[in-house]
């Protein structure tokens, strides 16, 4: 299951543009390829990125992405 989630997250991250950086946590910021590497290695940064991706997918599934404010 964990490997399946990792594969799913990496597939999603590969759709990120290559001219961006993502700032996350006190450690700094990461390019798309660096994020993917962290997810592959399963370190702390990788775990955070998995959490963010899974939160997005869960919100999509539960309809939270489309809520209006206050609902």
């Amino acid at each position: 299951m964990e490997d399946e989630i990792k594969e799913l997250v990496i597939a999603r991250l590969q759709t990120l543009p290559d001219d961006i950086s993502v700032s996350v946590g006190a450690d700094g910021e990461y390019s798309r390829d660096q994020i993917i590497q962290h997810v592959e290695e399963g370190d702390e940064v990788g775990k955070k990125m998995v959490e963010i991706e899974m939160n997005f997918l869960r919100s999509l599934k539960e309809g939270k992405l489309y809520e209006t404010y206050g609902e």
């Binding site: 543009p17 993502v22 963010i52 939160n55 489309y66 209006t68």
Partner: peptide, 25 residues
């Protein structure tokens, strides 16, 4: 929420759509 809704409902550049996961977070 406004930014999220705009990105969902209108035609946006791929890099804009990519921000959705982080805005929601």
């Amino acid at each position: 929420r406004r930014n999220i809704n705009r990105l969902i409902s209108s035609e946006t550049r791929p890099e804009e759509s990519a921000t959705l996961r982080y805005l929601l977070w």
